[in-house]
Simulated scan of single mutants.
Amino acid sequence: MAAAGVGSRRVSEDYIAAGRVSVNGEVVTEPGRRVDPSRDVVHVDGLRVQLDADHLTLVLNKPLGVLSAMSDDRGRPTLEPYVTPTGKRLYHVGRLDSDTDGLLLLTNDGELAHRLAHPSYEVSKVYVAEVRGDVARGVSRRLRDGVDLEDGPARADRFTVLQNRTDASVVQIQLHEGRNRIVRRMLEAVGHPVTRLTRTAMGPIRLGQLRPGQTRAVTGSDLGELMKVVGL
């Protein structure tokens, strides 16, 4: 636990003595319990502890123009320069179009990546969009009730107008679907084509103050919360 960043050895022992630690679903109260990082699952206060030191999960603020891919035959910018410095083979969780910037998760934890991308776990995603036109009050209800797209209805979980102007507005939309260009298509369907789109959150992970092209590791309670939303 100390090696996994939970706290010092003494702090970890205090957690165990207080009954805050479980191994494979069983509360452990005696220090010295040996675990196998490749098989055993440890939780502290209900949050998963990543024991495998080879696993790495990053948040990238993907810049505009970068493809959600590790290589491209046409020589377009890809994710490769942001992954190479880690020395690990990371994969992107889902995609962002080249003309959409913001939060993209990169990981070599296959089970975490699978669950985050699987629609059954309904992981929420938050976007901030600049759109054309003055957004009328009824647009929020239309999006939350659902709009018809060519591949079926789509519904926003939340919709907020952040700035409203006659010619252009800024909105925030939250949804848990991941269909291709779904935010752009939903907003166009209600008469407000997107001119700029940024993803600011995925599940409990926020973009925060990361500048375009910067990354940060998802560790500790942030990683535990991310695993919790997909049942790990």
Rank of each mutant, 00 (worst) to 15 (best):
residue 101 D to S: 13
residue 87 G to E: 03
residue 151 D to C: 11
residue 55 H to N: 06
residue 146 G to F: 13
residue 179 R to C: 04
residue 65 G to Y: 09
residue 202 M to P: 00
residue 57 T to G: 06
residue 16 I to W: 11
residue 76 R to Q: 07
residue 41 V to N: 09
residue 15 Y to A: 07
residue 51 L to W: 06
residue 206 R to M: 04
residue 7 G to P: 05
residue 56 L to H: 05
residue 78 T to Y: 08
residue 25 G to H: 06
residue 62 K to E: 03
residue 89 R to P: 02
residue 171 V to C: 00
residue 49 V to G: 13
residue 199 R to L: 04
residue 118 H to Q: 09
residue 219 T to Y: 02
residue 142 R to P: 05
residue 75 G to R: 12
residue 159 F to V: 02
residue 229 V to E: 02
residue 163 Q to C: 00
residue 143 L to Q: 00
residue 13 E to Y: 12
residue 185 R to T: 05
residue 81 P to V: 12
residue 64 L to S: 05
residue 60 L to M: 06
residue 78 T to W: 05
residue 98 S to F: 14
residue 168 A to P: 01
residue 120 S to T: 13
residue 52 D to L: 13
residue 17 A to K: 13
residue 150 E to D: 10
residue 230 V to S: 01
residue 17 A to R: 15
residue 229 V to S: 09
residue 188 E to Y: 06
residue 15 Y to G: 02
residue 186 M to C: 07
residue 90 L to D: 02
residue 86 T to H: 01
residue 200 T to A: 02
residue 50 Q to E: 14
residue 152 G to S: 11
residue 2 A to H: 04
residue 30 E to T: 14
residue 197 L to F: 10
residue 127 Y to G: 04
residue 24 N to S: 11
residue 211 R to C: 01
residue 63 P to S: 09
residue 191 G to E: 07
residue 16 I to K: 02
residue 208 G to R: 08
residue 151 D to P: 01
residue 205 I to G: 01
residue 173 I to H: 03
residue 170 V to S: 02
residue 205 I to Y: 06
residue 194 V to M: 06
residue 4 A to E: 05
residue 145 D to R: 14
residue 149 L to M: 08
residue 225 E to A: 15
residue 65 G to R: 14
residue 61 N to A: 08
residue 68 S to L: 07
residue 63 P to F: 06
residue 111 E to N: 09
residue 181 R to P: 06
residue 207 L to W: 01
residue 157 D to G: 07
residue 73 D to E: 15
residue 21 V to A: 03
residue 26 E to N: 12
residue 26 E to H: 12
residue 210 L to P: 10
residue 178 G to W: 03
residue 166 T to P: 10
residue 160 T to Y: 00
residue 163 Q to T: 10
residue 211 R to Q: 08
residue 54 D to M: 09
residue 110 G to F: 11
residue 37 P to H: 04
residue 45 D to G: 05
residue 36 D to R: 15
residue 28 V to S: 04
residue 231 G to H: 03
residue 196 R to P: 01
residue 130 E to P: 00
residue 148 D to N: 00
residue 161 V to F: 03
residue 142 R to W: 05
residue 69 A to I: 00
residue 193 P to D: 01
residue 70 M to T: 07
residue 141 R to A: 08
residue 66 V to R: 06
residue 223 L to F: 02
residue 153 P to E: 04
residue 87 G to L: 07
residue 47 L to M: 10
residue 197 L to M: 05
residue 174 Q to S: 14
residue 96 L to S: 08
residue 72 D to A: 10
residue 24 N to I: 15
residue 148 D to H: 07
residue 145 D to S: 13
residue 203 G to T: 04
residue 118 H to L: 13
residue 210 L to G: 04
residue 84 T to M: 07
residue 48 R to G: 04
residue 139 V to F: 01
residue 170 V to T: 15
residue 141 R to H: 12
residue 59 V to L: 14
residue 166 T to A: 15
residue 69 A to F: 11
residue 179 R to Y: 05
residue 219 T to H: 04
residue 120 S to F: 12
residue 219 T to V: 14
residue 231 G to D: 10
residue 126 V to L: 01
residue 89 R to F: 07
residue 170 V to H: 02
residue 61 N to H: 15
residue 150 E to S: 08
residue 175 L to Y: 03
residue 79 L to D: 09
residue 44 V to H: 08
residue 160 T to F: 00
residue 32 G to S: 10
residue 173 I to A: 01
